[in-house]
Simulated scan of single mutants.
Amino acid sequence: MSTFSAYGMGPQGFLVNRPLNEYEREQHLNVKKSASEQVLYDLSLIKFNSTFVECVDKWYSMRGFVAMVGGALSVIALGMQGLLLYLAFSEKLSVVELLGFPFFFVFLWFVAKFLLSDAFTYTHYPIRLNRQNRRVYAFRRDGSILKAGWDEVYWTIYNTKLGMGGGDLNVMGHLLEKDGVTIKESIALSLVDAGEPGRQNLLQFFEFFRRYMEEGPGPVLDALKPVPLIMLPGIDHQKESWFFGWEHLTGGMKGLPLLQILFQPFLLPISLFRWIVMRTSKIPMWPQWVEDECAVAPDDPWVRDGRHRA
Rank of each mutant, 00 (worst) to 15 (best):
D118Q: 12
R304S: 05
E22Q: 15
T160S: 03
V39E: 08
L162A: 13
I183V: 09
V75H: 02
L78M: 13
S74Y: 12
G70E: 04
G251T: 01
A112E: 14
D305E: 01
Y137R: 09
W302L: 11
T182F: 09
L85I: 02
F114R: 11
Q264T: 10
F208I: 06
V220P: 09
Y23Q: 11
V277C: 13
N49I: 08
E185A: 08
G143R: 04
F263V: 08
K254H: 08
G255D: 00
M164T: 10
A35E: 07
P219C: 14
Q27P: 00
E22A: 13
L232T: 01
K254D: 14
G167A: 07
A35K: 01
K239W: 03
H237I: 10
S186Q: 09
V96E: 10
E97P: 06
M231K: 00
S74Q: 07
G195L: 07
V31P: 15
V192K: 07
E185T: 05
D179S: 11
C294N: 15
Y7S: 01
H174Q: 08
G198R: 08
D151W: 02
R141I: 12
L175W: 04
Y158Q: 03
V16Q: 02
R274L: 07
V296R: 03
F263H: 03
R140N: 10
L98E: 06
I187F: 00
L115A: 05
L262A: 11
P19D: 12
A119P: 00
L108D: 05
G306E: 13
F244M: 05
A77Y: 04
E247A: 15
V296A: 06
L202Q: 00
V39A: 13
L259P: 07
I157W: 06
P19Q: 09
S34C: 06
D179P: 08
I230R: 15
R128G: 10
I230D: 15
E24T: 13
V66W: 06
H174G: 02
S186M: 01
A223E: 08
N30D: 15
Y125V: 11
F139P: 09
Q288R: 02
L108M: 12
W155D: 06
K282M: 09
A188F: 12
R131N: 03
G64P: 01
S44W: 00
P287N: 01
Y154I: 04
L84C: 00
E177R: 13
K33I: 10
D57L: 00
L93M: 02
L191N: 14
